[in-house]
């Protein structure tokens, strides 16, 4: 397991804690494994667990499901199971997280 983490790039825990970048990192880490809803440029919406992101805002969602239209209720059309999906940053239109998970990410929203 240890070697695996090394291979997986620098771990954010080793970063100094003072800079604004480390704060941003903490915020993003707080979102990890939360349910996330991302709307894409072609109108589809993906819902899945937030697993990974980078500087270009490429996002990887786990157990993702594809919905054809962005709607608040999922009555229109059944989702399609995609599994692990990467959404390129330039195709991300909007990002939402589920509210009941928001308590521990309060800092994230409050700080904007």
């Amino acid at each position: 397991m240890a070697t695996m983490i090394e291979e997986n790039g620098p771990s954010s825990h080793e970063q100094p804690e003072v800079s604004s970048s480390s704060q941003a990192r903490l915020k993003l880490e707080g979102l990890l494994n939360k349910n996330m809803r991302i709307r894409m440029t072609d109108g589809r919406t993906l819902v899945g667990l937030f697993l990974c992101t980078d500087r270009d805002c490429n996002v990887i969602l786990g157990s993702a499901q594809e919905f054809l239209k962005s709607t608040d209720t999922f009555s229109q059309g059944e989702p399609r199971v995609l599994g692990l999906a990467m959404i390129p940053g330039h195709h991300v239109v909007s990002i939402e997280v589920e509210a009941d998970n928001l308590e521990d990410t309060q800092g994230f929203v409050a700080n904007h």
Partner: peptide
């Protein structure tokens, strides 16, 4: 959280993966 998320991402280093 689109705005905040994108803002936070920009703080990451080039090639760095947050995971």
């Amino acid at each position: 959280i689109t705005h905040e998320f994108k803002g936070a991402c920009k703080e990451l280093n080039l090639g760095e993966l947050l995971h």
